[in-house]
Amino acid sequence: RPRTRITDDQLRVLRQYFDINNSPSEEQIKEMADKSGLPQKVIKHWFRNTLFKERQ
């Protein structure tokens, strides 16, 4: 599967949610997917990777 490119607008949506809650529920992930147009799987990976980077 090719790598998903996240646009600036999509990144802005993800960052807004991450700043509020870095561990979103399934419902919140679905909401983000609707707003950003990204697949839920991509959003889950983005949150996991971003949380890991923040903790380092």
Rank of each mutant, 00 (worst) to 15 (best):
R1G: 05
R1P: 07
R1A: 01
R1I: 02
R1L: 04
R1V: 02
P2M: 15
P2D: 15
P2C: 01
P2G: 12
R3E: 15
R3F: 04
R3P: 08
R3D: 15
R3C: 03
R3H: 15
T4P: 07
T4M: 15
T4D: 13
T4R: 03
T4L: 08
T4Y: 12
T4H: 02
R5H: 14
R5C: 14
R5Q: 11
R5I: 15
R5N: 15
I6G: 02
I6Y: 08
I6Q: 02
I6H: 05
I6D: 02
T7H: 04
T7M: 07
T7V: 06
T7I: 01
T7W: 01
T7Q: 05
T7D: 12
D8R: 05
D8L: 11
D8S: 13
D8M: 09
D9K: 13
D9A: 14
D9Q: 13
D9Y: 07
D9W: 07
D9M: 09
D9G: 10
Q10G: 01
Q10F: 01
Q10P: 01
Q10E: 03
Q10T: 03
Q10Y: 01
Q10K: 03
Q10H: 13
Q10D: 04
Q10L: 02
Q10I: 02
L11V: 05
L11G: 09
L11A: 11
L11Y: 04
L11S: 07
L11N: 11
R12C: 10
R12G: 10
R12H: 08
R12E: 12
R12W: 02
R12D: 06
R12T: 06
V13T: 11
V13Q: 13
V13E: 12
V13R: 05
V13I: 14
L14S: 00
L14E: 00
L14N: 00
R15L: 05
R15E: 11
R15T: 11
R15Y: 08
R15V: 05
R15F: 07
Q16G: 12
Q16L: 09
Q16V: 07
Q16M: 12
Q16N: 07
Y17N: 09
Y17H: 08
Y17W: 06
Y17I: 07
Y17T: 03
Y17C: 06
F18M: 07
F18W: 13
F18V: 04
F18L: 08
F18A: 06
D19Y: 13
D19L: 13
D19G: 08
D19H: 11
D19K: 14
D19C: 09
I20G: 11
I20S: 11
I20P: 13
I20N: 12
I20L: 11
N21K: 11
N21M: 09
N21R: 08
N21H: 12
N21T: 15
N21V: 07
N22G: 07
N22P: 11
N22Y: 09
N22C: 12
N22F: 05
N22I: 10
N22R: 15
S23H: 14
S23L: 07
S23C: 14
S23Q: 12
S23V: 05
S23T: 14
S23F: 11
S23N: 08
S23A: 11
P24E: 01
P24K: 01
P24I: 01
P24F: 01
P24Y: 02
P24A: 01
P24W: 02
P24L: 04
S25G: 13
S25D: 05
S25R: 06
S25L: 03
E26T: 10
E26D: 14
E26W: 04
E26Q: 15
E26A: 11
E26S: 06
E26M: 08
E26I: 14
E26C: 13
E27G: 10
E27Q: 13
E27H: 07
E27L: 09
E27M: 11
E27C: 11
E27D: 14
E27N: 08
E27S: 13
Q28E: 09
Q28C: 03
Q28S: 06
Q28G: 06
Q28T: 12
Q28I: 11
I29L: 14
I29H: 04
I29P: 00
I29Q: 05
I29W: 03
K30A: 12
K30L: 05
K30P: 01
K30N: 01
K30Q: 04
K30W: 02
K30F: 04
E31N: 03
E31H: 07
E31P: 00
E31M: 08
E31A: 07
E31V: 09
E31K: 11
E31Q: 02
E31Y: 02
E31G: 04
M32F: 03
M32H: 01
M32P: 00
M32C: 03
M32K: 00
M32R: 00
A33S: 10
A33V: 06
A33C: 07
A33N: 06
A33H: 15
D34V: 10
D34C: 11
D34Y: 05
D34I: 09
D34E: 15
K35E: 07
K35M: 05
K35A: 04
K35F: 04
K35C: 03
K35R: 07
K35G: 03
K35Y: 03
K35T: 06
S36E: 08
S36N: 13
S36I: 14
G37W: 02
G37V: 03
G37K: 11
G37F: 02
G37T: 03
G37I: 01
L38F: 01
L38Q: 01
L38K: 00
L38Y: 00
P39C: 06
P39H: 09
P39Y: 04
P39Q: 07
P39W: 02
Q40G: 09
Q40N: 14
Q40K: 15
Q40D: 10
Q40P: 15
Q40W: 10
K41N: 10
K41M: 12
K41I: 11
K41Y: 03
K41F: 04
K41E: 12
K41H: 04
K41Q: 14
V42R: 11
V42D: 14
V42I: 09
V42P: 01
V42N: 07
V42T: 11
V42K: 10
I43M: 01
I43H: 00
I43R: 00
K44F: 07
K44G: 08
K44W: 06
K44R: 10
K44E: 08
K44T: 05
K44N: 04
K44I: 09
K44H: 08
H45Y: 11
H45Q: 14
H45P: 03
H45I: 09
H45K: 15
H45D: 15
H45M: 13
W46T: 02
W46M: 02
W46F: 07
W46R: 01
W46D: 03
W46Q: 01
W46G: 02
W46A: 01
F47T: 02
F47R: 00
F47D: 01
F47W: 06
F47K: 01
R48K: 15
R48N: 15
R48Q: 12
R48G: 08
R48S: 08
R48H: 10
N49H: 02
N49I: 05
N49L: 08
N49P: 01
N49Y: 08
N49M: 09
N49C: 14
T50Y: 03
T50V: 09
T50W: 06
T50F: 03
T50A: 08
L51E: 08
L51S: 13
L51P: 05
L51V: 08
F52E: 12
F52G: 14
F52T: 15
F52W: 07
F52L: 13
F52P: 10
F52H: 06
K53P: 06
K53E: 12
K53W: 04
K53D: 06
K53F: 06
K53Q: 14
K53Y: 15
K53A: 13
E54H: 14
E54I: 15
E54Q: 13
E54V: 07
E54A: 08
E54D: 13
E54N: 13
E54C: 07
E54F: 10
R55W: 03
R55T: 06
R55Y: 06
R55H: 13
R55K: 07
R55P: 03
R55A: 08
R55V: 09
R55E: 07
R55S: 14
Q56P: 05
Q56N: 08
Q56S: 02
Q56L: 01
